[in-house]
Design a protein around this nucleic acid. Structure first.
Lengths: 207, 207
DNA sequence: GTCTATAGTCAGATAGAC
DNA sequence: GTCTATCTGACTATAGAC
């Protein structure tokens, strides 16, 4: 029995997590192919050979970064969906959690997830795609309900693509410390993208 | 005086254009770094050395693909903007031209433009970024007018990012021959993203 | 304009000492 | 768990014949 349990929430990151974080940061800034394992190792003060004690291959690194990102955002949005029962508020909570996962502390991993999937082998691509489909199914579910209430266009697939496209694009331009925080950004985009939904909240009279 | 003038609209593509098209197709499917010059040459029945008679470097290929894509979409949207004088119709025409340029015959080049810019050298990145800024300025201009008429949120930068994000994301999922043509897709997305705009057109009573 | 041949570089991954 | 040293292969780009 190894001591690798409960490694998800600890404050002191394991070596493996340090490597994943450094790799994600480099992959986001330079792309997967333009980043060498030597660069990743150097970032951590080790040599390239040592990396392969922790990971079987460079692609293995990429796959784990992506799976971690997808696991995080899926869990966050699923919880928002389960917590908020009423519909307009539930979708707002889902948008907030999506942007928080995308633009928050895991920005590197999430950006890599969005823009480096072509560097995966076909087999790994299928695995990641299956996880992404499961995530998108959460949205389809709640958007279907909204469509039945007449709150969104009945073409739910198109609504989902438009919504997630607008949200995901923010990873290309959003920079922490800008004029809008993530929470405020989520509200603004929600109002813009779901104009038929009135929230009965305090921002009803906002500009 | 060489015979290279008026090469833009001809039906028979020059060798250079054939190379650019083959490269764009491979870059879109595999990414820039994962595509070798040998593959590009093979696609055209030549050997890798011959490519360098036409292009100085592999990056040169990428830059030309991107510049061509940006030139096309800028021209198309600028013409729509200049032709339609009235505002809601003008923005619809711009959305239609944006999607037509993005998803039409130049889909390969446009996708490469959107997703491979990190493979450019810093100098080339600046050049491309300047062209992209000029393109986005077209949108800022018309969206500013719309904001003054109360047709869109006054945060024009956010509106532009949201709009272009949703439109550009379609390159990830749209496939020609699907249930929606490009023209119809543009109308649907326009209505979804600009709900305050009523067009005075025939689709006023659509579902 | 295209070929062959190859220079020159750098990548991912492995073996074995410590 | 990290190191040094190295294998093996692939890549871009060039030179010069045709």
């Amino acid at each position: 029995m190894k001591k690798t349990a409960a490694d998800t929430q600890q404050a002191v990151p394991s070596r493996k997590e340090e490597i994943l974080a450094a790799a994600a940061s480099l992959f986001r800034r330079q792309g997967f192919e333009r980043t060498s394992v030597r660069e990743i190792a150097q970032e951590l003060g080790m040599t390239s050979g040592s990396l392969f004690y922790h990971f079987a291959s460079k692609e293995d690194l990429l796959v784990m970064i992506m799976e971690e990102g997808l696991r995080d955002i899926t869990q966050a949005v699923r919880q928002a969906q389960a917590t908020e029962k009423r519909l307009p508020e539930r979708l707002l909570a889902m948008v907030q959690q999506h942007l928080a996962a995308l633009l928050g502390p895991r920005l590197d991993a999430m950006t890599v997830l969005l823009y480096e999937w072509r560097s995966l082998s076909p087999e790994a691509q299928q695995r990641i795609l299956a996880l992404r489909d499961a995530y998108e199914a959460l949205w389809t579910e709640s958007l279907n309900e909204a469509a039945q209430l007449g709150l969104v266009d009945p073409d739910v697939a198109l609504v989902r693509q438009t919504l997630l496209g607008a949200l995901n694009w923010s990873a290309q331009w959003y920079r922490p410390g800008g004029r809008l925080g993530i929470h405020a950004l989520a509200e603004r985009m929600f109002v813009m993208l779901f104009p038929k939904m009135r929230l009965g909240l305090e921002q009803a009279a906002a500009a």
